[in-house]
Amino acid sequence: MQTVKMVITGPFAAGKTEFIQTISEIAVVATERKITDFTKAIKDNTTVAMDFGRITVDDDLVLYLFGTPGQKRFDFMWEILSEGMLGFIVLVDSTRSETFKEARQIIDIFRTFSNTPFVVAANKQDLEDAWPPEDLRIMLDLEPHIKVLPCVATDRESVKTVLLELLYSILETYEDDEEEQFEADTETN
């Protein structure tokens, strides 16, 4: 059996747990803890270690989704989690501009761990004061080739689309390889 791993990251309360919950076939195994500090104002539970979801494709292929803990003090987990990932998704709460800077830092950190493709999901697009994906791209100062996708983590179709877009980007890396291979082959022959 082969297992493939993707990581869902993003700032505190961006919707990572929700995203995995929406698509995973198992109840997300998470170590949620009651929040006691100031973050309480935003929500009641936070992911202490990480979320873990699963999508079984068939008898010999399983996709695992690992959500990172949102709070900074658990960022020692990030590198561990990113080991061997095929790609990653950065979720951003599009309604909370105060988290944009942090989202950008998270992207930079994850890029030091791995060159695997990633997409940015502008989450909570169902809310009225959500920043549109293209505005978010500018705020996060992202290069044009990076996909910034609208997302509603509670909506299964939306989550599917984000996952698919990441997979398409991953697929492109194989095509790049093939082009390079072709160039290399034609050079030597």
């Binding site: 082969q2 493939v4 791993k5 698509i23 999508i55 494709v57 068939d58 292929l61 996709l63 061997g84 990932m85 095929l86 790609g87 761990f113 791995s114 060159n115 695997t116 493709p117 299964r156 599917k160 996952l163 698919l164 997979l167 398409y168 991953i170 697929l171 890396t173 194989y174 390889d177 390079e180 291979q181 290399a184």
Partner: peptide
Amino acid sequence: GRRPAMKPKRPDVEKSVVNRLIKFIRGL
């Protein structure tokens, strides 16, 4: 030989596996 990159671009996963994932998630 072909890619001097220091960091692995992706784990050792066949292209066909990615295609299977895509097909499956589309059908969900």
